[in-house]
Design a protein around this nucleic acid. Structure first.
Lengths: 116, 116
DNA sequence: TATAATATATAAGAATCTGATATATCAAGA
DNA sequence: TCTTGATATATCAGATTCTTATATATTATA
């Protein structure tokens, strides 16, 4: 299980990535998909997820469709064209962040040997 | 320039990584090293960095040595044995997080083609 | 009958970061 | 001489985001 502290700031990007890939999803679905894709190492909390989804809706990045399945309400979220552009941008940013972080993480031979 | 939003949660791990690698560093030094290692893509703010350093000291993860260099005070931070163990743990966690995030980021063929 | 899974939602509190502000020295250029 | 930029630490109000707890409700399983 990954310390959720690290997840801070990337939740929105993850949600956008999943929506861009899966067309439309509902909240509960998103948490399960993340769990599945990360082999159970990331478990989203609803207290974090729903505010993000609502905010994306207010921003005009997603539209919602409420459907009934076995007497349970599902609220599907789907990217708008604007949301899709935003998703592309955020995913690119996250990928760049990952690259930069790997620069920081790799053993730094300069400072470790030559620089001292 | 990386959106600093993504940095949330990993700042402490980055600081620990640099201290583990460089023996001792002072605050200003850390910001420059991060800028250097990330090709200017990450610029730490002091409002974020100093509270982290102070917290690490309170927790007993680092000790400080104040030195004077050209009439400018430098406060060097150095890992304690406890801090070193903590650093190893946090760096491992960050590496695991990077792996997990790459699982989420890679194009998902299952859901994209087969699953639909 | 009770528990687990399914499904959404909110809110208080905690943690963390941004951006502004403050202080001070030294070097370089106008 | 004066101003700007680099060097160096520090704090704080405000914003943002996440955690944890709580609430509600249905269906399936033990």
């Amino acid at each position: 299980m990954i310390s959720t502290e690290l997840l801070k700031g990337s939740l929105k990007s993850i949600v956008l990535k999943l929506l861009a890939e899966n067309g439309r999803m509902y909240g509960y679905d998103i948490t399960r998909r993340v769990e599945e894709l990360t082999a159970g190492k990331i478990k989203l909390t609803y207290g974090a997820l729903y505010p993000v989804l609502h905010k994306l809706e207010v921003e005009g990045s997603v539209t919602t469709e409420s459907e009934n399945y076995n007497n349970r309400t599902r609220i599907y979220y789907k990217l708008t064209p604007k949301g899709n552009n935003f998703a592309v941008e955020k995913i690119k940013e996250l990928e760049e962040y990952m690259e930069v972080m790997s620069m920081l993480l790799k053993p730094n031979i300069q400072s470790g040997l030559i620089g001292s």
